[in-house]
């Protein structure tokens, strides 16, 4: 008895899907083998993520947190504060507030803090010690998550009452001994790192586009 025509069409159609699926599986397997992702022998070992011991400090940050701002009134305290919420809504280059920790800098008159960023990078916060009419500025910069290995830094110039002074502060991962940076006058500045932090005070800014380069002796 000859098979029904509709049955044959259904069978051929199923076979078409089956063959298509098998080709797909084979293609994925070949691609995995070629990329080395499917064999333990060729898989590259994953490098450990950079760590920052300063983030594990149990010391109080000493940086007052504020949930709102106001105009300063006579008698209001002087000194840096930090907003709990980012002024730019959804800004992920903002510190995770609970992770803010104080850094200990060798440079006099500066205060700085380290924090993880919401996006997964690392942040540095700097207070240069200069308040104008009782208002204290802090400077903030956060690395991208990919920039964790390089760290984060801020450079401040044109500070009121401090003509010509340039202050730079940064954080780098554990194991980094110093950072070097090409300056605007063509020289190279090398700054030691202590407790994940470095600070430089001088009268020359970094050359535009020249970021601090972490170096390790070991």
């Amino acid at each position: 008895m000859a098979p029904d025509a509709a049955f044959v069409r259904r069978l051929l159609s199923r076979r078409k899907y089956l063959v298509g699926g098998m080709i797909g599986v084979i293609a994925v397997t070949v691609a995995l083998l070629l990329s080395g992702g499917g064999t333990a022998a060729t898989a590259s070992p994953s490098s450990a993520a950079p760590t920052y011991s300063a983030l594990a400090s149990a010391e109080p940050s000493g940086l007052p947190l504020v949930s709102s701002h106001s105009k300063r009134e006579a008698g209001d305290p002087v000194g840096p504060t930090f907003p709990v919420q980012p002024p730019r809504e959804g800004d992920e280059n903002w510190p995770v507030i609970s992770s803010i920790r104080r850094l200990h800098l060798e440079a006099q008159g500066l205060s700085a803090w380290i924090a993880r960023s919401v996006a997964g990078g690392v942040c540095v916060i700097l207070y240069d010690g200069v308040s104008v009419e009782g208002v204290s500025p802090v400077d903030l910069s956060c690395s991208s998550p990919e920039g964790l290995e390089r760290g984060a830094s801020v450079e401040v110039s044109e500070i009121p009452g401090e003509p010509g002074e340039v202050v730079a502060v940064g954080v780098v991962p554990d194991g980094v001994d110093s950072v070097s940076q090409t300056m605007a006058d063509g020289s190279t500045s090398t700054t030691p790192v202590v407790g994940n932090a470095w600070a430089r005070v001088g009268d020359v800014a970094a050359a535009p586009g020249q970021e601090p380069t972490p170096t390790s002796e070991g």
Partner: peptide, 24 residues
């Protein structure tokens, strides 16, 4: 202006920000 220094981007396309303790 008149209150803070300038805070520079650490690298191209990154963010530099100044945050004051009070409104001015």
């Amino acid at each position: 202006r008149g209150i803070s220094g300038v805070s520079c981007e650490p690298g191209p396309g990154e963010s530099g920000a100044v945050i004051l303790s009070y409104y001015v």
